[in-house]
Nucleic acid binder design. Structure first.
Lengths: 215, 215
DNA sequence: TAGATTGTTAATCGATTAACAATC
DNA sequence: TAGATTGTTAATCGATTAACAATC
């Protein structure tokens, strides 16, 4: 998929994932949607919706709106989730376990193909989906022998191990990391990192709860 | 805590949680930090750091910088996590279980005081920390009888139940929701909601991995 | 006092929105 | 053709950054 321009902001992509989620929901009841309707669900303006979508192409029909199932396909194509992307989980504590045992959590387009830990007591155990927990030192070998690309890792080790583990992954060819730890990774600019920090989000929530503007 | 102005953007609060995390890390080695050093770790400018902090007050010393432990205390105060905030978990599937059994995940300032589910097979079970899984219909009663405020819920039900469950919580007095489901909640403007969507974040990661600008 | 770094103003940059020509 | 809604331009708004006076 080629885009008109590649100065795309993070916010556009974040909204794109939201559009997708909403469209899949609305699809149960409707076949078409226009930018006004979509903007209302999104709490934004219709101009925002049209601008966002037009970043990637002309998907609407003037006078009518957007075909929902077509738009879903397009967004899935943009996000690269209309095919299977292989991911490995690194760190099989409570978080890693939750992810590996919860088929739904990753959503469409992602498949867990390997689980790694450094704990000798865990290595060798077979967990959900017939995946064996492997030694984290074997990531390189695993990637080389795997039939297909494995570029993405979900980092679910303890905070203290995050930087070291991430560096190892990068050395072994991993290109993208979903960082589930609280640690702010410092990696080369060729590595893509996205962070999920539950405690930080809870702090944000707490701030807004305490500072709700009275209107 | 009173602020100079209350037109505070979401981004400022997000960065505030990052500053806090970094400061706690740097505190192991240093007592003081200046805006330049902090900006380098944050991948931003020193002006950004000073501007962000000055939103809340004058915490630095000209010619020197910021006292780390003082700044940590201040940010914790701003975020309201220097005291214990009670939270309940609603939905005790894989996600709720991960959170309730993982003391570290919520971080400083938060305490799980109740766990709720609608599944009769789960209700009554005692899980980690001597908390009993309660019937989700008993949230109101629980809040009224609890010695202390319970305003915050972590919503960890399945997507299909998210909107209904959230509405019930709001009816029963909950004011802030950390939404761990993929569903975009539609609630009154007096309710504070922050979303964590693992699959959406993975989609973002996948987009950037596939569209890494070649430099 | 001289050197350093803050807090803040003003300039710049980027993102959102209003408005409308294009077109189904 | 008339009505509706897109895609896009230009105007507005807000966030970031450069620059510097204030001051430790």
């Amino acid at each position: 998929m080629k885009f008109k321009k590649l100065e795309i902001s993070e916010k556009v992509i974040q909204r794109l994932t939201e559009y997708l989620s909403i469209l899949k929901d609305v699809q149960k009841y409707e076949n078409e949607i226009n930018s006004i309707e979509l903007s209302k669900i999104m709490n934004t303006t219709s101009a925002q919706v049209r601008k966002d979508l037009s970043t990637f192409g002309d998907f609407g029909v003037r006078g009518k709106g957007y075909d929902i199932s077509k738009l879903i396909e397009i967004i899935e194509d943009i996000l690269g989730i209309n095919k299977v992307n292989n991911v490995i989980i690194v760190g099989h504590g409570k978080m890693g376990e939750m992810i590996s045992s919860n088929r739904n959590v990753l959503g469409k387009g992602f498949q867990i193909v390997g689980i790694f830990d450094k704990d000798k007591n865990k290595i060798g155990k077979v967990v959900s989906d017939n995946l064996e927990i492997r030694d984290v030192n074997g990531v390189k070998e695993f990637r080389e022998n795997f039939c297909g690309e494995v570029d993405t890792a979900i980092l679910a080790v303890v905070k203290e191990q995050a930087q070291f583990a991430a560096e190892q992954l990068v050395k072994n060819g991993i290109k993208a990391i979903l960082n589930m730890t609280t640690y702010k990774l410092e990696l080369g600019s060729d590595i893509t990192v996205v962070n999920i920090d539950i405690s930080a989000k809870l702090q944000e929530l707490n701030f807004w709860r305490l500072n709700k503007e009275e209107k």
